[in-house]
Amino acid sequence: MLEIKNLHVKLEEEDKQILKGVDLTVEAGKVHAIMGPNGSGKSTLSYVLSGKDGYEVTEGTATLDGEDILEMEPEERAAAGLFLAFQYPVEIPGVGNMTFLRTAVNAQRKARGEDEISASDFLKLVRERAASLEIDADMLKRPVNVGFSGGEKKRNEILQMAMLEPKMCILDETDSGLDVDAMKLVAHGVNALRDQGRGFLVITHYQRLLDHIKPDVVHIMSNGRIIKTGGPELALEVEKNGYADMKAEVA
């Protein structure tokens, strides 16, 4: 589904190489986890895939179901089925959460040549999916992420994901800042979407989340590269020994 080959990325503004040849393939229906120390380039990878300005791809490719996504506008990538749950969800004063969700759902439908969702169907769907994430009516009415707690913001990301039903979901440290209960809600939200052939790329620091979202493959990223790939046991190894040993192995 998502195929990243030899991806090299530098900052547009300065001569700083951040990704130094990333290779990664996420198959339909699979959950891949990326772990790695701070500053290793995990968020950068997620931003480059979703089309944020400020980065320059100097080498390599990234395709979604065979389509080159790096050439697309961010909204085209979204319509193609890519979704990023942000590490730091953005507050947007003055834009109601509900308006935002409806506009997004309809924009994607339109881009795919589908009809807009009716107001009542939409409302029903939001209420149902919000309820399972314990997002109340008040949070839906408020401006996007404004005044939300850290946990509320992360749950709001998952709600957007649930509404947009993307085929490839990237979650950037969705677990950080969550207490155990909130993490279970988020994991439950992800697992609910897991069937139906969706691909997931879960970026995390902790084994904790992976207890609830069981990964098929675990990658370790360090200094702009995937330095090790393995099964779920790799996450347990990191939990026990940290990254130092692995870094030494490749060095």
Partner: peptide, 8 residues
């Protein structure tokens, strides 16, 4: 960017 990443 946040809005566009959601398909707007």
């Amino acid at each position: 960017f946040y809005l566009r990443s959601r398909g707007l």
